[in-house]
Design a protein around this nucleic acid. Structure first.
Length: 490
RNA sequence: GCCGGGGUUGCCGAGGGGUAUGGCAGCGGACUGCAGAUCUGCUUUAGCUGAAAUCCGUGGACGCGGGUUCAAGUCCCGCCCCCGGCUCCA
């Protein structure tokens, strides 16, 4: 079945297939390393990550780039304020971003290029634009893109030049021909980092790096170009203009834009003081919970963030994990192999087909997730009817589909560790009678035997107090028809 | 103002012409001596019919109002509200 992807350029879902061979070439606009990455970034990068994972799952080779913008006005501003070099600021926040990306288990891009590492390529591209008459220089050494020269300007964002002109204004000191022209090269101001160029010392404008680096590593026409929805205008519009003006070819075939984050309806911003850095979220919830939060909303829709929502999300994840761990435990211990489910293969095929169907529809992760949940529920409720090899197959498939969404990749031990690190109850995920140290098992068995004797003699107050004290020690007792089971809580 | 994206039950969210998917939360029931775990049920609803009803039928109900259709969250028209872009943003 074909993968349909929404293309901002055409405002439609279109059949996706790579231009050349079986290799998908993609470029995602990475961070401007000016501050700690926040959960809005996380949402966007998780969406890119899911796209890459699903493309791989479908059998494509994916070659993708995520750039780092390491020079811009805000970085310079911050450096001045802290009295350090802009490179120190960029380096600091780049490292933070890298740690966050790793903590969220984002797949590594094939290349992670820096703007400042590609000044020669940028200069070459600007030269080409000047030669072709799409760009002009000014007395002070700036270079601007001449927007009116590019006839298709506005095709991505749907903006009309006449509308844009009405709103735009030339700031004092700028020597633009037209208020909507944008800078390709900015002449150096005293104290700012700068590089030599044919137009004097200066630094690249914001948009040009992406075009230069895309072309260098991926060619003149790439399959997918992604970014946050806030980048559609002006950033991506400008990228298209400068790239297509230079090459005369389409720059990107698919434009993939991720919806923005809201804080319970509000915008997340410094002035509202409601920015949640990725690390704060990770302190309270593990990376899979955060990923699940992100994919529980379709990537193009606005997503809300608040702590209760993550709490809820963690429950959903734990529910799936508990089924998985219960099944895994059953494999290792008491599973009776006498039975097997007749239509197992059919059911398995259905779950996988439905999952793919959902993902093929413009990465409908909320739906795919629902199917994966049904799958884990099916596994749990049929444990006694499945053969050992059927259980094994189901677990393997669940974990493979989970990989696409970036969840259900932990072992029981790892999951327990994540929970303990945050001081959380683990009884929601551990299977009954699971115990890490075999040493205490005989004692536990003894206590339970004694307590059951008390229960038989209807000395319930004593039996209950044993249960209560074990609970305080972190062991919950569950009396059932099959006898008393325990479950560790801490 | 211009350009996008949204508005589905207490909450999150699928569904894009054919009985409103699933979860969370809440409240019941089963199982338990109790609890937990598990399973299961209910959770939009004015009016009308009727002695009455938690039942049956009818009828509304997916922001609001119209329309197309045998049939409308779903398509069309108009409007309201929310978010974003038009200035740095993922």
């Amino acid at each position: 079945m074909q993968l349909m992807l929404y293309n901002t350029l055409t405002r439609k879902k279109e059949v996706f297939a790579p231009l050349k061979n079986n290799i998908v070439r993609a470029y995602f606009c990475g961070p401007t390393v000016q501050d700690s990455p926040h959960i809005g970034h996380a949402r966007a990068f998780i969406a890119f990550d899911i796209l890459v994972r699903y493309l791989k799952f479908r059998g494509y080779k994916v070659f993708f780039i995520r750039n780092v913008t390491d020079i811009d006005d805000k970085i310079i501003e911050k450096a001045k304020k802290e009295n350090v070099t802009p490179f120190e600021i960029a380096h600091r926040y780049y490292l933070e971003f890298l740690h966050a990306a790793d903590a969220l288990k984002l797949l590594h891009p094939n290349i992670e290029p820096f703007a400042t590492g590609h000044i020669p390529e940028i200069i070459e591209l600007i030269k080409k634009l000047i030669d072709k008459g799409f760009a002009y220089t000014t007395k002070s050494g700036d270079v601007y893109f001449d927007v009116l020269k590019f006839k298709e300007y506005g095709k991505l964002s749907g903006q009309r030049i006449s509308e844009l002109k009405a709103g735009a204004r030339i700031k004092p000191g700028e020597e633009k021909k037209n208020p909507i022209d944008f800078a390709l090269w900015k002449a150096a101001k005293p104290g700012e980092p700068s590089w030599p160029s044919p137009w004097g010392r200066g630094r690249p404008g914001w948009h040009i790096e992406c075009s230069a680096m895309t072309m260098k590593y991926l060619g003149e026409t790439i399959d997918i170009h992604g970014g946050g929805a806030d980048l559609i205008f002006p950033h991506h519009e400008n990228e298209i203009a400068q790239s297509e003006a230079a090459t005369g070819k389409p720059f990107a075939r698919f434009w993939f834009h991720v919806g923005l984050l809201r804080m319970r309806g509000d915008k997340m911003s410094k002035s509202l003081g409601n920015i949640v850095p990725i690390f704060e979220a990770l302190r309270r919830y593990d990376h899979e919970t955060i990923r699940l939060w992100a994919i529980n909303t379709h990537y193009r829709k606005p997503i809300d963030f608040y702590w209760d929502l993550l709490e809820n999300t963690e429950k959903i994840l734990d529910d799936m994990y508990s089924s998985l761990f219960l099944a895994e435990q059953q494999l290792e211990t008491e599973h009776k192999t006498t039975e097997s489910l007749n239509d197992f293969n059919e059911r398995l095929r259905d779950f996988i087909a439905e999952f793919k169907k959902a993902m093929n529809d413009d990465l409908n992760t909320p739906k795919a997730l629902g199917i994966l949940r049904d799958f884990t529920e099916f596994l749990k409720s049929n444990l006694n009817r499945l053969s050992k090899s059927q259980i094994e197959t189901a677990i393997k498939e669940i974990r493979e589909l989970g990989w696409v969404l970036g969840i259900l990749q932990m072992s029981l031990e790892e999951r327990i560790q994540e929970k303990r690190r945050r001081g959380k109850d683990i009884s929601t995920i551990v299977p009954p009678n699971y115990i890490e140290s075999g040493d205490i098992k005989p004692f536990l068995d003894l206590i339970i035997a004694v307590r059951n004797e008390l229960r038989k003699r209807k000395i319930f107050d004593l039996a209950d107090s044993i249960r209560e004290r074990l609970k305080q020690m972190g062991i919950a007792l569950e009396d059932s028809k099959e006898g008393t089971k325990w479950r560790i809580k801490k």
